[in-house]
Write a protein that binds this DNA or RNA. Structure first.
Lengths: 239, 239
DNA sequence: GAGTGGTCTAGACCACGAG
DNA sequence: TCGTGGTCTAGACCACTCA
């Protein structure tokens, strides 16, 4: 038996996909919709939270609920993918970086494989699409590898410069969770919208960590895409 | 200013990490906790939903809220990773597969790059750890490639058999969202727990799709890990 | 200031699990 | 059957946006 919230979400979803509500349009107020469906405001808000989590609806505090433009999902390109998949979006994205030199936090010293209290460079990225934040990234780089400046505009992430150490392996761990209050505030999403939490560790041939990054991406607007190519000659031997 | 739910979640988080509440232990009932923190039950439940989304707490309907064993996160291994990372978990996982021959659904014909109404094999996997569902997978394979039986126990996913067509590229698209009601029911998670939604498409050298899979993994128990290795000789030329 | 969504309350009633 | 969590109600009050 379907719960009320899902029934309402289904109905609204149909009205959106059928074009009754068009992209960019503002929905009736939550109070109106609640009356219309004969439910309490909380239940109606739960229904909207589902659609919001699917990226169909965008809530704007103090203004209204809006139908999202569906095709505008941003893609984080991981794996061996060339940055080419970024090209179509890069024009819309603006990145702001704050660089700081810090002592390695205790919880990162094991991850980065550096001695405790050594220095490293922390880069905090916020990525915006128009006025909307679309990404939050903490990147940590050993001090001796950090370049003075980095060209980053147009990509949500930076690869370590492939000049000096040879990049051998990148591990990216992805999880889905609810945002912390700070993340929800910075990304301007409601606490009920899931985020993709991505931890990336790049190592060189000697096993030293070149870069560690922690990314938080709002699940309603951003996907992550991992592409793996297998060389046709190099058949993967089963072990 | 921190909201009540986050303040309560922080406090409970500390009590868990400090060992005041131990792994496997049952928390006081929601009514008790609500009284203790002097909030309504809804607010307290919102706080618990946060911890649940982080994988710290497991809610069991009709029984109670339990502190999760922290180290037991399952990892979905994507990218070029060897199945080795599965070894430690495989003993705990049990997989059930249902195979059916179906006509290709319209929304999949473009994805699979097969003519509409052609036949393909659908495999529905449910993965369990003990009594808990930990994964839900729909895998579609063109009929002529589908083997009669597949050895799948111990892995949450199957790779297409590397016998016949040579696998060239795997694309995995990951997003974080809230589960549908059906998914929440099957995975036995609450609708507020985010899921990792993963779409995998494997193609051979000719661009034909060998396999398409749609996985839904509960965010509170499963991570996805993507490993990319760069051959040291093969320097990635920047284009 | 008017109207919007965000948080929270103090309940009611239902569904589930264990004894 | 009893105690648990799950859903929902009908509000109150606050925070934000826009005119």
């Amino acid at each position: 038996m379907p719960s009320r919230r899902h029934a309402i979400a289904d109905d609204l979803r149909h009205q959106i996909s059928s074009g009754h509500f068009k992209a960019g349009e503002r929905l009736p107020s939550e109070a109106q919709l609640a009356t219309q469906y004969a439910v309490s405001t909380s239940t109606l808000r739960n229904a909207l939270a589902l659609l919001q989590g699917e990226g169909l609806v965008e809530k704007i505090h103090g203004n209204g609920n809006f139908v999202r433009h569906p095709l505008r999902r941003i893609t984080y390109a991981g794996g061996a993918a060339a940055p080419a998949s970024w090209a179509t979006f890069s024009a819309h994205l603006r990145m702001i970086a704050q660089t700081a030199s810090i002592e390695v936090p205790s919880h990162l010293s094991t991850l980065l494989n550096v001695p405790p209290r050594s220095n490293l460079t922390e880069v905090l990225f916020t990525t915006d699409e128009g006025r909307k934040p679309r990404g939050l990234a903490y990147i940590y780089i050993p001090r001796d590898l950090a370049p003075a400046t980095r060209s980053v505009v147009g990509q949500i992430t930076v690869r370590p410069p492939d000049a000096r150490p040879v990049l051998v392996e990148v591990q990216e761990r992805v999880s889905a969770r609810l945002p912390t209050q700070a993340e929800a505030g910075t990304l301007r999403i409601s606490p009920t919208v899931p985020v993709l939490s991505l931890t990336r560790v790049s190592t060189d041939a000697t096993g030293h960590v070149i870069e560690a990054a922690s990314l938080v991406l709002p699940g309603d607007a951003v996907d992550a895409l991992f592409t793996t190519r297998f060389a046709t000659e190099e058949r993967n031997s089963k072990e």
